[in-house]
Amino acid sequence: MITVKNLVKKYADFKALDGLSFEVNENEIFGLLGPNGAGKTTLIHILATLLKPTEGGAIVNGFDVLHNATKVRQSIGVVFQAPSSDDILTGYENLKIHALLYGIPRKLREKRISEVLELVGLEDRKNDQVKKYSGGMRRRLEIARGLLHHPKVFFLDEPTLGLDPKSRETMWKYIKKMVREEKVTIILTTHYMEEADMLCDRIGFITNGKIIALDSPSKLKQEIGGDVVKITFNDRIPLDKDFTKFDFVHKVEQKENSVIIYMEKVNSNLHMLIKDLDGVQTIEYKKPTLNDVFLKLSGDYLSGDSPEGGFMQRYAQYKKS
């Protein structure tokens, strides 16, 4: 659905994107994860035809973002980070104006506006001015607006930034619903790990304009060694037990009177591990989170000048304000 090839974007001496290549499949939710200033928004702007890349290119829904901008624009819906609906107009008026901008024929217009309003659960608020909406409702209205013209690809730039935990969960619900009902491919950027884990089929980690890892959340978590089980015995470790004989065990470490076992799928395999085991004092286990993956991956990249509040980011904010 999307092919990105060797994408480079330079601002003076600063490389926002540094030779990015990846593909996004049809009907998947693809997450772009990374610290602030990693290049996620720049990438979205290029894919949405708002920015020209310095080098490389991208194909969206079969159309070149550089040479066929109109076709790309007809294929995509976008929700930007900052609010982009007129808060002095009503939700319905915002949708009508955008339906006209997308050239949706008069006969289909009203029907489609009701459909998208219903999809994001705002039909009873459609005649209120947007300034009376909550942050989450406003974001949902913008999703509805982006869906008006039946896009094939949908970009969500930090869809839950600044929302409280409850609104965030509501948002996730609607994002899943829109994939199911509208059959769109979604690219979303976020720096909330649990959001990416919850929603995304695959995740690309971006740091300093490069993709440093790309896989499904579960595979990424396995890469840092899978689940960890720590069995502590009453006095000492039984000598006759060989945990490495199981296929699902990767590695075994021993410490005093406990064993630490790195393994796959602790939920379904634990019972085999502890069968016929005597003298067990405690069993603890930990499933790695995307956060662990992120910290491990970005560890060597984020030394010194951390992007979170680092110089480049402060500079970018200064330029923006």
Partner: peptide, 13 residues
Amino acid sequence: KFDFLKSVMVAPS
């Protein structure tokens, strides 16, 4: 300043 213009620019106009 707010993203209205961007949202118009990504429309096929």
